[in-house]
Every structure is written in C-alpha cells, then in structure tokens.
Design a protein around this nucleic acid. Structure first.
Lengths: 144, 144
DNA sequence: TTTATTTCGGATAAATTTATCCTATTTATA
DNA sequence: TATAAATAGGATAAATTTATCCGAAATAAA
C-alpha cells in the first residue's frame, strides 16, 4: 500500500510525537532502533518530513528531532504520506492509466473510488496524537 | 496500490475476456498493444495467470490466450491480484510489522482494517465479465 | 574560540521490480 | 514429416527503490 520509506516515516513521526509530548528530543539512532529501520535511510526520510514541516530538526550538539507539542494534534497521517509518497495514492489511476477520470475511466475507476475515498478519509482524519497515545498506553506497538 | 505487473495483469485479463466472449484468441502482441504495456513483460505476467488458472494458453500455431466463455463471469479481480501480487494486500501490516494482529497491533491496525476490508470486498465482488462489458459498451477504457 | 555532537546532503551500493532478448518446446497445417 | 507460428522459460539488462557511507555545515558547551 505504502512504500517502505513511507512506513518508516509514519512510525518515526509517531515515535517523535510520543517523545516530544514528554519534551524529549530524539536522534535518528534512537528512532531507527525503536521502529526497527535502517538508520541512514531513516535519516533521509526525516529530512523529507522536515522539509514538509511535519517535524522539526535541531542541528548541532544536543540537537535531534521534535514536534511542537501543540502541533501534534493537528498533524494528519495524510501529510506524512504526502510528504514521502506524494499524491499518487489520491490521484493516481488504479490501473496506471495516464488519463483516467469520470469521462475516460479505467475499468475499475468507480470501484476503486470507494476504496480510495475510504483511505483518504482515514488518512485525513487520523492525527499523530491519536496514534501516539495508543503507543504511550501500550495498546499499540511500533515494532516486531 | 498494485504493482505495475498487477496492473498489466488486470488489464490483460479484461482484454482477453472481451475477446474470448467473441470466440477470439489473442496473442501477447495484440494484448500489449491494446493495454499499452511492454510485450515481453506482459507475456511473463500471462504465464503467471495461466499457472493460477485465471486464463488458458494454447501453444503452437493458431495458439494464443483465452478464457473459457462460461468462466468469465466467475473470475474475480481478487484471483488476478493474488496470482501476481500475492496476498500481501490482504494480510500484510500497513506499517510492515512482522507481527501485527489484534493482540499486538501496529498504530494504524484498526484504521487500516476498514480500508482493507473495503478493498477486499471490492476485489472479491468484481468479476471479469462486469469489467469486460463496460469495455465492450465503450463506457470504460484500457489505455491512454 | 575550540571541541564535540548532530543534522544535511551528495555519492554510491545493494536489492527489487520492471523490461528485454533469445532459444526451446509445442502444435496446426501443408 | 517438414514447416511455420506460437507460448514457455531462462538469462540478462535497465530502472527504481531501498540502504549505506562520508564529509560539510551548524550549534551547544567547555
């Protein structure tokens, strides 16, 4: 469904959110250990999230990644997916047609629309704080 | 959502269905031209569909690919996707966790479940003849 | 101001997916 | 039986995604 990069990005953002809510800045090393991902690759993905204003980086000694506490509740899964995988999941044709729309639909256009709307809905109505709180309470997990 | 191979596979199967309903056997060349896909790669995908009993191949002169007329209405999109992409889309974790289930869920487990069920539903309730008839009536298209 | 720490970013490598090529095998027809 | 036409399948190449490495730039603290 999502690229590996996007999976890492989502998990990393959740982990950062959990820590930022406790005023704790984290490094790529800590992140990749907690979410079980390759460190250098994860660092690249973090850069993309920084560029897209999903997370904040602080360079230099005692630096790391964080999210403004009061922003955690406003960040949607959709923003993370968009930052890493782009808008293909929303706008791309299910069968890869270049031109696929109501007037010139691919064979599964209508059927896919339902699924895609469901997905879009989910991504746009799920915020980082919801996901982070489940991690904090031990209801959900970031690895294994 | 699906791999390129799977996209080609779905389109190829629809094209074969359209032709088989008119007692017309088709070649990889015709198929790849009609669905705008690389010929040799498409041929490989057709082999996978043959192995999984989605389509039938006839070797030798005057050979080609076809689907038993009375089988077209029974073939579900799900079978094609399974033959090419496997069951990852059903069973895989949205965030790539090896162990992700009700007892040990990833952060988006419940939210994803809804989308995945919608997708599964769609794939298991869409048959080749439905898709083929839209192509025949010019309502939907296989390329551009 | 120097040093240690840490992100940034470019270059490169490995793995996977996508795509091509060529030969073997099969089969209908002459 | 010989021939031509067609799928099967292995080997290989190209493209993309995933992953690693290393030096440059930034920054806090000594």
């Amino acid at each position: 469904m999502f690229s590996k990069a996007c999976e890492y990005g989502i998990k990393a953002a959740i982990f950062i959110a959990v820590n930022s809510s406790e005023n704790n800045r984290v490094s790529p090393k800590e992140i990749s250990e907690e979410i079980d991902s390759p460190q250098a690759f994860t660092a690249k993905i973090l850069q993309a999230l920084v560029k897209n204003n999903v997370i904040k980086s602080v360079r230099g000694a005692y630096g790391g990644f964080e999210i403004d506490k009061d922003k955690i509740a406003t960040i949607k899964l959709a923003q993370i997916v968009y930052a890493i995988d782009g808008d293909g999941i929303y706008n791309g044709c299910g069968l890869g047609l270049h031109t696929c729309n109501e007037n010139h639909p691919c064979p599964v256009h209508d059927k896919f629309k339902v699924v895609r709307e469901e997905l879009r809905d989910m991504l746009e109505n799920t915020t980082l704080d919801q996901l982070a709180s489940d991690i904090k309470s031990g209801v959900s997990f970031l690895k294994i």
